[in-house]
Design a protein around this nucleic acid. Structure first.
Length: 509
RNA sequence: GGCCCCUUCGUCUAUCGGUUAGGACGCCAGGUUUUCAUCCUGGAAAGAGGAGUUCGAUUCUCCUAGGGGCUGCCA
């Protein structure tokens, strides 16, 4: 399939919110497609009707959009290979199952779920934990291999429920070359006769994904490592269906692991460890549970994406900050790692900080203004920009920008206790009183003039910055730390600054 | 249990047989700063273990250990 157009699909099942591991899979698909000038397709794998969760599909689509990795084609995006929901493709699958049966690569099985449970339990009791429906055990089960043709036809005509299982050859080595892992090989003796077509008339994932990938002309299947064990089965299906020459190339991605302990990252880890595992907040309709999202936690989508891209891939250079376009240009499946990657929330925060810092003051001003507005505080764009410019160096999130700059919006209600105790005394009081007087005389109350007046006071009285600064800061902001006082005062304006100095002189001991 | 995959600093990772094993996050120290943050400098910190191939292995092979995934009429 090397000459065909690159077409990749992200194929989640709508059983709940998409978690960040899924987003990363989507991202790698997107990056690869865009780099190759190909298409990125969204297909909804809802062949298990019992696991359908309302809102999940919408959530998936909204998540991809928020991340900026919008599909070119697929459910919710149109295209010529639809429908893109497997439940709506239901009628297409049966013929392929029948074809496999006709060709001797599959068979009907009439064993009920209870039959199978019983056999499995018996095997377990006998000390074998893993009973499989395979080339040996199928001989003692109820299927078209053991039943006479007559019996089979009768059952089918009677409408008895059945499934179609693939018929695996004995002792056959199945090999395929995975883009990230190289050659992977499994013997059919270790595989089982998987169900391809369920008794409810729907295909299983295994059949559906092969049929759809073929019909949708998918060139590369990029998915999580959890699919690696069934990839040989899929290879066999392509072969038995006669599609092996156009079989897509596989790339199985390493899993995202829990930051602590063992296992893959799961939805419970987030709240347990204090970080979101979902791109967007998710409300579980049934339980009423709320799972937090990166978006609602104030992460920038490009920072989130940048972080995710680096969980399992890196460009081999020292560069770590990549825009989506840069990721598209630099990405390579060949450079994807094989081992699972542990999620590191500190690094995610760092990415967000970097993105925040690299935004223009104008943009940050707008975001801060919006944040303030949400808190019912109106602030001019000019002031918001000024504050943002001053505060951005110490913020990770827009929320920090807002929370750390409260003193710009209101005179101190209380004064930092420690600073008060250590820095406020009669001397500090006299400095503040004197500064107030000098500031009064400034006609153009800008940063430079304030600084000049302040420094003139210091030099005329042979005072060090440390003698006057802390008390001054405390009086104006109520705090013991923060950015340049001259800039702060300039933003506050002359009237407000003087008023605060006055308040301090009146209220502080 | 069986099968498959994986294994470099605490974490994410670079290294295409010869490097003082590099970077980033986090951590620690120092410097800059009135202070905090930023920033700058420095530091601690890794090739799971064992065989083999080779003049030489982190790099190739095998074994062991450890980790992960799968093992459903779920995806």
């Amino acid at each position: 399939m090397s000459n065909a157009k690159v077409r990749v699909r992200f194929a989640p099942s709508p059983t709940g919110p998409l978690h960040m591991g899924g987003v990363r899979t989507a991202l790698y698909n997107y990056l690869f497609a865009k780099q190759q000038g190909g298409d990125f397709i969204l297909r909804i794998e809802d062949t298990d009707q019992t696991r359908f969760v309302p809102g999940a599909e919408e959530y998936i689509i909204e998540s991809l959009k928020w991340c900026g990795i919008t599909p070119d084609e697929g459910q919710g995006f149109g295209g010529n290979y639809g429908p893109y929901r497997q439940s709506e493709r239901k009628a297409m699958y049966r013929q392929y199952a029948e074809q496999l049966v006709a060709d001797g690569h599959a068979y009907y099985a009439f064993d009920s779920a209870e039959d199978l449970d019983r056999v499995r339990q018996m095997a377990k009791d006998a000390g074998s934990p893993n009973w499989q429906y395979n080339h040996i055990t199928r001989n003692s089960m109820k299927n078209s291999l053991t039943l006479s043709q007559n019996e089979v036809e009768k059952k089918l005509e009677a409408g008895e429920p059945y499934v179609v299982r693939i018929k695996l050859n004995r002792n056959e080595e199945v090999k395929f070359e995975d883009i990230v892992r190289g050659w992977v090989s499994v013997n059919t003796n270790n595989m089982d006769d998987k169900v391809l077509f369920k008794s409810d008339g729907m295909p299983t994932y295994h059949l559906a994904n092969i049929v759809d990938d073929h019909l949708m002309e998918i060139s590369h299947v990029i998915r999580g490592e959890e699919w690696l064990p069934s990839a040989p089965l899929h290879v066999l299906l392509y072969r038995y269906l006669g599609w092996e020459d156009t079989m897509p190339q596989f790339a199985h991605l390493p899993l995202l692991l829990k930051p602590d302990g063992n296992g893959k990252l799961s939805k419970r880890d987030g709240d347990r460890l204090g970080f979101p595992v979902f791109p967007l907040e998710w409300h579980n309709q049934e339980s009423g549970e709320v799972f937090s999202g990166y978006r609602e936690n104030g992460y920038f989508p490009d920072a989130f994406i940048n972080m995710l891209a680096f969980l399992g891939w890196n460009p081999g250079t020292a560069q770590e900050l990549f825009s989506l376009d840069e990721l598209v240009a630099a990405f390579s499946l060949k450079k994807v790692n094989k081992a699972g990657a542990r999620y590191d929330h500190d690094k995610t925060r760092w990415f967000n900080q970097q993105y925040l810092r690299h935004k223009s003051d104008a943009e940050l001003g707008k975001l801060l203004q919006a944040e303030a507005s949400e808190q019912d505080v109106e602030v001019s764009l000019e002031k918001a920009e000024g504050i943002a410019a001053l505060m951005k160096e110490r913020a990770y999130f827009i929320k920090d920008l807002w929370e750390d700059s409260q003193f710009f919006f209101a005179a101190p209600q209380e004064y930092d206790e420690k600073t008060l105790r250590k820095k406020w005394n009669e001397e500090a009081r006299s400095h503040v009183a004197e500064l107030q007087k000098r500031f009064e005389a400034i006609s153009d109350f800008n940063t430079e003039n304030i600084e000049e007046a302040f420094k003139a006071y210091l030099s005329e009285n042979e005072l060090g910055f440390g003698k006057v600064g802390p008390g001054f800061r405390l009086a104006v902001t109520g705090m013991g730390m923060g950015p340049s006082m001259f800039e702060i005062c300039a933003i506050l304006g002359k009237e407000e600054t003087l008023s605060r100095l006055n308040q301090a002189l009146e209220q502080l001991p």
